[in-house]
């Protein structure tokens, strides 16, 4: 499913003297099956932008369309939205509310009109995808660890089988192993054909996993490209409160010390290969 926005604009307190433009005339296309990272400092408009993509906010101006259909138009079936675009908010585990894990994840599919049995089946499948074992299904969500709760919350969205999955900082507050689990899970969903849009404060994570990075600053797209390309602009990124992944600074330090490594490398794996080549 292709997601497209044209001159997408959103103003808080629109029409008043307090109007603040959070998203400013963004036009771009996200083709089906792409893994996209969105980065930007706090307040750059990331969260507002993804809420527009998901139809949770109505644009002040401009259009969001799915496979060419404007989601604000009369012809668009709003009910189908949740099976097209799923969104996982920040700290989604705070929204778990049912008495068991399975019931919680079944809630979305039931709302889509599935029978209890069908919903439970969809929920079980989603839980399997996020790596939650069957023996945990009857537990209360509150008995789980932080990382498990986060994965259950993500399963709640996946169970509605969206074509496009948007996640707003899904790894915030997790320990390193928990972060890896979530990112590995997203990578698997993407390999199975889902479009994944990941909002993140971790340059290391986006460098390692996504195909395309959108850098936001003051409501606009500041840079748009493959990780290597985007992170080659490290000084511009620093000027807007971001950074390149730590490993590219490591390579720069090596280069400054007289070892001729390629400083545009952005992942640990590639860096190790490159340094080894120069040392052997």
């Amino acid at each position: 499913m292709e997601l497209k926005c044209e001159k997408l604009t959103y103003e808080y307190d629109a029409g008043t003297s307090m109007a603040k433009r959070a998203v400013d005339e963004i036009s771009l296309t996200i083709p089906s099956g792409q893994f996209v990272g969105i980065v930007g400092h706090t307040g750059s408009g990331k969260t507002t932008f993804v809420q527009l993509l998901d139809g949770l906010l109505k644009p002040t101006a401009g259009v969001v369309s799915l496979d060419g259909v404007d989601i604000a138009s009369k012809g668009f079936d709003r009910r189908s939205m949740r099976s097209s675009v799923g969104i996982v908010f920040q700290y989604p585990e705070y929204q778990l509310f049912e008495s068991t894990v399975l019931k919680d994840v079944s809630f979305g599919p039931k709302n889509q009109g599935l029978t209890d049995e069908e919903a439970a089946k969809a929920a079980a499948e989603a839980l399997r995808k996020v790596g939650i074992e069957e023996e945990v299904f009857p537990s209360s969500p509150f008995e789980l660890s932080g990382g498990q709760r986060r994965r259950v919350a993500i399963a709640g969205v996946i169970a509605m089988e969206p074509k496009i999955l948007i996640l707003d900082e899904p790894t915030a507050g997790l320990d390193p192993a928990g972060r890896e689990e979530i990112l590995g899970l997203l990578s698997n969903l993407w390999k199975d054909g889902m479009t994944v849009i990941l909002v993140s404060h971790s340059m290391e994570d986006v460098a390692r996993y996504v195909e395309r990075i959108l850098v936001m600053d003051r409501g606009k797209i500041f840079l748009d490209g493959a990780p290597r390309e985007v992170f080659s602009h490290s000084e511009e990124l620093e000027a807007i409160g971001l950074a390149a992944p730590e490993v590219s600074y490591i390579l720069k330090a090596l280069k400054d010390a007289g070892i001729d490594v390629d400083p545009t490398i952005t992942t640990v794996e590639e860096a190790v290969k490159e340094i080894k080549r120069k040392l052997c």
Partner: peptide, 11 residues
């Protein structure tokens, strides 16, 4: 207690 968990790199 995790003062930076919710912040961007600059923060």
């Amino acid at each position: 207690d995790e003062p930076t968990a919710m912040l961007d790199p600059q923060g």
